[in-house]
Measured scan of single mutants.
Amino acid sequence: RTSMTEEYRVPDGMVGLIIGRGGEQINKIQQDSGCKVQISPDSGGLPERSVSLTGAPESVQKAKMMLDDIVSR
């Protein structure tokens, strides 16, 4: 199975929601999608934060859908 890494961007203000209490939400995204999700520690003052998604292409797609779902709330 091919693994890929894709850079994705999320609004900086949503990072807390994506990570969740004690990392609960980000762990759920990783478990449900099978994709490794790494959020860059700092946006460098930019409105968006970089997130790197690593996994099989379908896992990366699923993680993106889950991120979009959180961001659109």
Rank of each mutant, 00 (worst) to 15 (best):
R1K: 15
R1P: 05
T2R: 07
T2Q: 03
S3P: 14
S3A: 14
S3H: 13
S3C: 15
M4P: 04
M4A: 01
M4D: 09
M4W: 07
M4K: 14
T5Y: 05
E6Y: 07
E6W: 10
E6C: 14
E6Q: 14
E6T: 15
E7T: 14
E7L: 14
Y8H: 08
R9Y: 14
R9F: 15
V10E: 03
V10R: 01
V10W: 01
P11C: 03
P11R: 05
D12M: 09
D12E: 13
D12Y: 06
G13R: 15
G13W: 09
G13Q: 15
G13D: 15
G13N: 15
G13I: 11
M14T: 06
M14E: 06
M14N: 07
M14Y: 06
M14H: 05
M14A: 09
M14L: 11
G16C: 04
G16Q: 12
G16D: 15
L17R: 12
L17H: 10
L17P: 06
L17M: 10
L17D: 15
L17T: 14
I18C: 02
I18V: 07
I18S: 04
I19F: 09
I19P: 04
I19W: 08
I19Q: 09
I19L: 13
G20A: 04
G20D: 10
G20M: 01
G20Y: 00
R21F: 07
G22Y: 06
G22P: 02
G22K: 08
G22R: 12
G22H: 06
G22L: 05
G23F: 05
G23L: 07
G23M: 08
E24D: 09
E24M: 11
E24N: 09
Q25L: 11
Q25H: 05
I26R: 02
I26K: 04
I26D: 02
I26Y: 01
N27L: 10
N27P: 03
N27M: 10
N27I: 09
N27H: 09
N27A: 09
K28P: 01
I29N: 00
I29A: 01
I29D: 01
I29M: 02
Q30Y: 00
Q30G: 05
Q30K: 07
Q31L: 09
Q31S: 08
Q31R: 10
D32E: 09
D32N: 13
S33M: 01
S33A: 08
S33K: 00
S33G: 00
G34A: 04
G34R: 05
C35G: 01
K36F: 04
K36D: 14
K36N: 15
V37I: 12
V37E: 01
V37P: 02
Q38H: 15
Q38L: 09
I39A: 03
I39E: 01
I39M: 10
I39P: 03
S40E: 13
S40R: 12
S40N: 15
P41H: 14
D42L: 06
S43Q: 12
S43N: 11
S43A: 13
S43T: 13
G45H: 13
G45K: 06
G45Y: 05
L46Q: 11
L46I: 08
P47A: 14
P47G: 13
P47R: 09
E48F: 09
E48W: 12
R49V: 08
R49A: 12
R49K: 09
R49Y: 04
R49Q: 10
S50T: 13
S50D: 05
S50Q: 08
S50C: 14
S50P: 07
V51Q: 00
V51G: 01
V51T: 01
V51P: 01
V51I: 15
S52C: 14
S52W: 13
S52V: 14
S52A: 09
L53N: 02
L53G: 01
T54G: 02
T54I: 06
G55A: 00
G55R: 00
G55C: 01
G55T: 01
A56T: 15
A56E: 13
A56H: 14
A56S: 13
P57I: 05
P57D: 02
P57M: 06
P57G: 03
E58P: 05
E58T: 07
S59E: 13
S59Q: 11
S59G: 07
S59H: 10
V60K: 04
V60C: 04
V60M: 05
V60T: 02
V60H: 01
Q61A: 14
Q61L: 09
Q61M: 11
Q61V: 09
Q61P: 02
K62G: 03
K62V: 08
A63H: 02
A63K: 01
A63C: 06
A63G: 03
K64S: 02
K64Y: 00
K64F: 00
M65I: 12
M65F: 08
M65Q: 15
M66S: 03
M66I: 05
M66N: 01
M66T: 01
L67W: 00
L67T: 02
L67P: 02
L67E: 02
D68T: 05
D68E: 11
D68S: 08
D68H: 05
D69T: 09
D69I: 05
D69M: 08
V71T: 12
V71E: 03
V71W: 06
V71R: 06
V71G: 05
V71H: 03
S72R: 15
S72I: 10
S72C: 08
R73G: 15
R73E: 13
